[in-house]
């Protein structure tokens, strides 16, 4: 069993020497990362450093040009498309813009994964959706369309949809982007509470919200040019004297990273 040196927890996901290019754009350049089981791992870095690409690889939505990705002991590179689809059923994903289905109301959006993959009766589906929406504080919005929701509400519906099948892994792609500070804090609180309520859940968050990352993450990985250049606990990052980390945390124009 491989143990994550930062948290001491067993590895749930491992990236080993992952390279990925899109045309001439070399996005991931030998990414090595361990995501510990039952913890919140935050991936931080400037825009375009490959954070979202990193997430898409673990769901099998992208295949690396080189390198390997393990989910527990399973090498994702050796799975066929059908097996990859089964792997995806173990994930819940909260997308940057929620990615709710425009043509469905909130209830149908949240119920969608259940209706696709389970054979529950309509009463059970209703009960599960009601509980999921109550958990994210949106019981009153059950029959509203996504276009009638605010950005924060859409993200909370996205979280309810991601949680509805009780996933093993929960991936958040910039969950607070576009929200005001108060809604961001509420979303962070929700992410933290979700993790506390599910000790076995392994969460990965991509975020630029450094305050939230340092408050809720168990492990932080800092990506620069498609590689993890620093990883550690939030305390390590908060106390680090490294010029890259200081510049990124301060959001300063002065430092080794140029615009």
């Amino acid at each position: 069993m491989i143990i994550d040196p930062v948290t001491g927890a067993p590895a749930a996901i491992r990236y080993e020497g992952v390279h990925k290019s899109f045309g001439t754009n070399h996005v991931l350049r030998g990414l090595d990362l361990i995501v510990p089981r039952g913890k919140i791992t935050a991936i931080i870095g400037r825009s375009g450093t490959g954070k979202s690409v990193t997430l898409k690889h673990v769901m099998g939505l992208l295949r690396p040009d080189r390198g390997e990705i393990f989910l527990g002991d399973v090498n994702l590179m050796q799975l066929n498309p059908k097996a990859l689809r089964r792997v995806r059923e173990r994930f819940g994903v909260v997308f940057q813009n929620a990615a709710l289905f425009d043509s469905m109301d909130v209830f149908d959006n949240v119920a969608f994964p259940l209706l696709e993959h389970e054979s529950f009766s309509s009463d059970v589906v209703r009960a599960k959706v009601t509980a999921a929406l109550a958990q994210v504080g949106l019981s009153a919005a059950v029959h509203r369309l996504p276009s009638e929701l605010s950005g924060g509400m859409r993200k909370r519906v996205g979280l309810a949809r991601a949680l509805i099948r009780d996933p093993e892994f929960l991936l958040y792609d910039e969950p607070t982007t576009g929200l005001d500070p108060i809604l961001s804090a509420a979303m962070d609180e929700l992410i933290y509470e979700t993790q506390q309520a599910r000790p076995a859940l392994t969460s990965v968050i991509i975020s630029h919200d450094m305050k939230a990352v340092l408050a809720i993450a168990d492990k932080v990985a800092f990506l620069v040019d498609g590689r993890v250049v620093h990883e550690g606990t939030p305390e390590y990052f908060a106390q680090s004297d490294d010029a890259l980390i200081r510049q990124f945390l301060a959001g300063s124009l002065d430092g080794p990273m140029k615009v």
Partner: peptide
């Protein structure tokens, strides 16, 4: 992408 991520 959400469909893919939900294994649909």
């Amino acid at each position: 992408d959400a469909l893919d991520a939900m294994a649909v």
